[in-house]
Simulated assay, not measured.
Amino acid sequence: MSGVSGTSTVTTEVVMPGPIEPAGLQVQARDLPAPAAGQVLLRMEATGVSFAEQQMRRGRYYDQPTFPFVPGYDVVGTAVAVGPRVAAETVGRRFAAITKIGGWASHLLIEAADLMPVPEGLDPAEVETLIINGITAWQMLHRTAKVRPGGTIVVLGANGGVGSVLVQIARAANMTVIGTAAARHHDAVRALGATPVDYRDADAYEQIRALAPEGVDAVFDHIAGENLVKSWKLLRKGGYLCVYGNAATVNDEGGNFWPTMALVSRLMLWNYLPNRRGASFFSIWAGKTITPKAFRARRREDLAQLLQLLADQEVKPQIAARFPLSAATDAMLLAESRTVMGKVVLTPDA
């Protein structure tokens, strides 16, 4: 059983021991030390299963740590203890954090500087869907592509964790959205405010072009692969292609470093073509090393914007399912089934 006792904590963690199938995930308990200077001990209330973990278990996520490790890209939780140089009133408050790894645990140690405040009264699982997915969507739309209100965008995978949030924040900015998804998700995508197109149709890109014959202001593509050029050709002059994944290679063998570098280089070169369009590979970690204070400030500001949209009911979190932490295998299997709308969330065991 997990809990806080004196200066130590027993945490329950889900471990990826090596390249595995979902059934190979291991649940273990271990002692955590007391928070060091600048650290906070967070009791997890919600964490998520994202595409990153699906790649990590295959050893194919760009710059993932060596095995074994605890996955979990983001987390919502309550501070239960703090180390030196952290304000005592931090204890008892709820925060969100982007961890990249470590979130699949009942308790975890996090640098206080990386915490983002979460107002009371919000469902932690709903907030969880807006951390990595929401901040990614917000920054791509408003900071990278800089689409103006009233513009038209294409969201590939509009039923996914990032895609479903992206559709909603674009609609909140009075944008027209065309979203690709399997036919079974079309009603749900339409309810979010997007015009759905079945990505499985051979003429899917022709259908999109018919909906926006003069081109679109931005395309958000997490797939890349052989259709990347088609995404590029959907843009009007001045449009922007924002790629934030390489899902087309998820089942390939070997590491993902060189495929990612090749994709990034290709997109960079496209910026020099004489057509006044832009392209880039989005990384939510850009700027952390060079300007860490500004990097963290942007995250806090963007999550605050998203949580305000949540409070105003302009964004409805898409929770595909909730599983207890110990059922991480089942959660991973469902997330990888490609049958869900939104994000699979892990919560503490009873």
Results as ranks from 00 to 15, higher is better:
Leu130Ser: 07
Leu130Ala: 08
Leu130Lys: 03
Leu130Tyr: 07
Leu130Gly: 09
Leu130Ile: 10
Ile131Tyr: 06
Ile131Lys: 10
Ile131Gln: 11
Ile131His: 08
Ile132Glu: 07
Ile132Cys: 05
Asn133Cys: 04
Ile135Ala: 12
Ile135Trp: 11
Ile135Leu: 13
Thr136Ala: 06
Thr136Gly: 05
Thr136Tyr: 04
Thr136Lys: 05
Thr136Leu: 06
Thr136Val: 04
Ala137Thr: 11
Ala137Ile: 11
Trp138Asp: 13
Trp138Cys: 12
Trp138Pro: 09
Trp138Asn: 13
Gln139Ile: 11
Gln139Lys: 12
Met140Pro: 08
Met140Gln: 10
Leu141Met: 12
Leu141Cys: 10
Leu141Tyr: 10
Leu141Arg: 03
Leu141Ile: 08
His142Ser: 09
Arg143Asn: 03
Arg143Tyr: 03
Arg143Glu: 05
Arg143Asp: 05
Ala145Lys: 00
Ala145Cys: 01
Lys146Ser: 00
Lys146Asn: 00
Lys146Trp: 00
Val147Tyr: 01
Val147Ala: 03
Val147Asp: 03
Val147His: 00
Val147Arg: 00
Val147Gly: 04
Arg148Trp: 00
Arg148Gln: 01
Arg148Leu: 02
Gly150Met: 04
Gly151Glu: 01
Ile153Arg: 00
Ile153Lys: 00
Ile153Pro: 04
Val154His: 04
Val154Gln: 02
Val154Trp: 03
Val154Met: 03
Val154Ile: 07
Val154Cys: 04
Val155Tyr: 07
Val155Arg: 10
Val155Thr: 11
Val155Pro: 14
Val155Asp: 12
Leu156Phe: 15
Leu156His: 15
Leu156Cys: 14
Leu156Tyr: 15
Gly157Asn: 13
Gly157Ile: 14
Gly157Ser: 14
Ala158Lys: 12
Ala158His: 13
Ala158Glu: 14
Asn159Cys: 15
Asn159Tyr: 12
Gly160Gln: 13
Gly160Cys: 12
Gly160Tyr: 13
Gly161Asn: 03
Val162His: 13
Val162Met: 09
Gly163Thr: 13
Ser164Gly: 09
Ser164Ala: 08
Val165Met: 10
Val165Leu: 08
Leu166Cys: 05
Leu166Phe: 09
Leu166Ile: 08
Val167Gly: 11
